[in-house]
Amino acid sequence: MKPNHKGQAQLFKNPVLERMTRTHIALPISIFLIIATGLLYYGITHSFINVLEALGLFFLGWFIFTLIEYLAHRYIFHMNTDTPVKARLQYTVHGNHHDYPKDKKRLAMPPIISLLYASIFFFVFKLIFGQFVFGVVAGILFGYASYLAVHYIVHAYAPPKNFLKYLWIYHGIHHYKDSETYYGVSSPLWDFILGTTDKKNK
């Protein structure tokens, strides 16, 4: 199916489930910015981390998120659809976005699902980083909020006349030329490192 600039995919026959797949972008961005701020505040005020540690850990978490974003987009959102179940899952999670890239209500994961993932990430990274988890996960959640903002802006607005235009170009290549390139949305860093840039169109 060719990308459609208008309309929406119907993912579920159940109207309640269908409604839950649509999210105003401001809601998840606000939620995760608030949580990220709360984690930093809690970590500092309860002496788990100091201000300098919080700053360094925050940027480490943000950097980690860029890799999570890349890997999730490449290997989960664009999974091999070699079975009907996987094909259905991939379309529900991401394929519908490629068919209807201008559907503004499906540019973010429903908050209830993303909050569940965020909780899992917190406990996993707590095992890895211990008390430093407050700074790291704050950076990861800020990275996710930034990704949501960039993804929404790239799809909803015309590209600016500055260096940020490259984000529009990269994501446009992914959507309209070759969906196996430029998996990074908020940053093309890992595409350059791991060789998934659009080499043939350069």
Rank of each mutant, 00 (worst) to 15 (best):
K2T: 12
K2E: 12
L11H: 03
F12H: 05
K13R: 07
N14W: 08
P15I: 03
V16P: 01
L17W: 02
R19L: 08
T23D: 01
I31D: 01
I34E: 01
I35W: 06
A36D: 03
A36V: 01
T37H: 02
T45N: 12
H46W: 00
H46I: 03
I49K: 03
N50I: 04
V51T: 11
E53F: 02
L57Q: 11
I64S: 07
I64H: 04
L67Y: 11
I68C: 10
E69Q: 08
Y70P: 03
L71W: 11
R74I: 08
R74N: 10
Y75T: 00
F77K: 02
F77S: 07
T83P: 11
K86M: 14
R88W: 15
Q90W: 07
Y91T: 09
H98E: 14
K104D: 14
L107A: 14
A108L: 04
A108R: 06
P110H: 00
P111G: 04
I113N: 02
L115Y: 06
L116A: 14
F121Y: 13
F122S: 02
F123G: 10
F125C: 11
L127W: 09
L127A: 10
G130N: 11
G130D: 13
Q131S: 11
V133E: 12
F134A: 05
G135L: 06
V136L: 09
V137D: 10
G139P: 05
I140K: 01
I140P: 02
L141V: 06
F142P: 00
Y144Q: 08
A145C: 01
S146V: 06
Y147R: 00
Y147Q: 01
A149E: 07
H151L: 00
K161F: 08
L164Y: 10
K165N: 15
L167K: 14
W168V: 00
I169E: 15
I169L: 13
Y170H: 13
H175N: 03
Y176R: 05
E180I: 05
E180H: 15
Y182T: 07
Y183C: 00
V185R: 02
D191H: 04
D191R: 04
I193C: 07
L194G: 05
T196I: 00
K200Y: 11
N201D: 13
